[in-house]
Simulated scan of single mutants.
Amino acid sequence: MITLQKELVHVGGVTLDNHLILAAGVLGTTGASLFRMLRQGAGGVVTKSIGPNPKEGHAGPCLVPLERGLLNAMGLPNPSKNFLQELEPLAGKPVVVSIFGGKPDEFRTVASWFEGVAAGYELNLSCPHAEGYGAAIGSDPAMVRACTEEVAAFGMPTWVKLTPNVTDIGTIGRAAEEGGATALVAINTVRAMRIAIDLRRPVLGNRFGGLSGAMIFPIALRCVYDLYEACSIPIIGCGGVSSAADVIEMMMAGASAVQIGSAVYDDSSVFGSIADVLYSTDGVSASGIVGCAHE
């Protein structure tokens, strides 16, 4: 298998220790858990999504393990501005804050709390199970551009996380790019559900949720491929990545780095495990393979 040179990675204005990033919503709820992921080999981390007001999230069950995947409907629980204190011990680390809101000015407000504190922002315009947030507004190109513009105005790295639950993800990606995004993150979870036959009702308290894990990797790969064709800013692949081979495949589709989420559920040391296989002294430069599947 192709291996990479181990080097500092510059993606969308953020400098990472390697190509592997902790995805939002997974062990990103405290400063201690974020630091733990960095210590265990993540090149950068993204926090839990933070919104304009404290939110408890949906009633349980909120997380259901499936074969080769997870189904969740957390509902964006977060402490809002109080999360700022969790980041204080992480000053200078590659920590990107995931933020959400229901309209552009709410994105601006939340972003203002972390100005100069975080390494950058990641706009959650893609959560499929929070009414009025995420994908509810992230499927509208005009709204995506407006929200991105408000955050990009701070002059900090601005990543935009996209939903796969749209007809043409390239159109949404271009809207984010036009709004000043410095990178695109593809993808968030796929809208899905399961039903408990014996109970005759959906397994999640919210009835439907987002599907993640290895089973959505081909969907995420295709979205990265499409965005590479449609946009000119860097892409960060996310969705079902669980091995070094997955990382290489994502890069060949067009990703400059990857995020890992559900794989952490099974193995919190997954970053180190993947890095041991991904990097070698005779590895190739990532620039030589990013997007090569388009040639």
Results as ranks from 00 to 15, higher is better:
residue 185 V to H: 13
residue 185 V to P: 06
residue 186 A to W: 14
residue 187 I to K: 05
residue 188 N to Q: 09
residue 189 T to K: 04
residue 189 T to Q: 04
residue 190 V to T: 13
residue 190 V to R: 02
residue 192 A to W: 12
residue 192 A to S: 15
residue 196 A to E: 15
residue 197 I to W: 07
residue 197 I to S: 10
residue 199 L to R: 14
residue 200 R to A: 14
residue 200 R to D: 13
residue 201 R to Q: 14
residue 202 P to E: 06
residue 204 L to R: 01
residue 205 G to F: 02
residue 206 N to T: 02
residue 208 F to K: 02
residue 208 F to L: 15
residue 209 G to I: 10
residue 211 L to M: 11
residue 211 L to H: 02
residue 212 S to H: 01
residue 218 P to W: 01
residue 222 R to I: 03
residue 225 Y to K: 03
residue 226 D to T: 07
residue 227 L to S: 02
residue 229 E to A: 10
residue 230 A to H: 02
residue 232 S to F: 01
residue 233 I to T: 06
residue 233 I to Q: 05
residue 234 P to K: 07
residue 235 I to A: 03
residue 236 I to V: 15
residue 236 I to K: 04
residue 237 G to T: 10
residue 237 G to W: 09
residue 239 G to I: 02
residue 240 G to S: 10
residue 241 V to G: 06
residue 244 A to S: 15
residue 245 A to N: 05
residue 248 I to K: 08
residue 249 E to H: 08
residue 250 M to E: 05
residue 250 M to I: 06
residue 252 M to C: 12
residue 253 A to R: 05
residue 253 A to V: 03
residue 254 G to D: 12
residue 254 G to M: 10
residue 255 A to S: 15
residue 257 A to K: 10
residue 257 A to E: 07
residue 258 V to S: 08
residue 260 I to H: 05
residue 262 S to D: 08
residue 262 S to N: 13
residue 263 A to N: 08
residue 265 Y to P: 00
residue 265 Y to G: 00
residue 270 V to M: 15
residue 270 V to K: 08
residue 271 F to H: 07
residue 272 G to R: 08
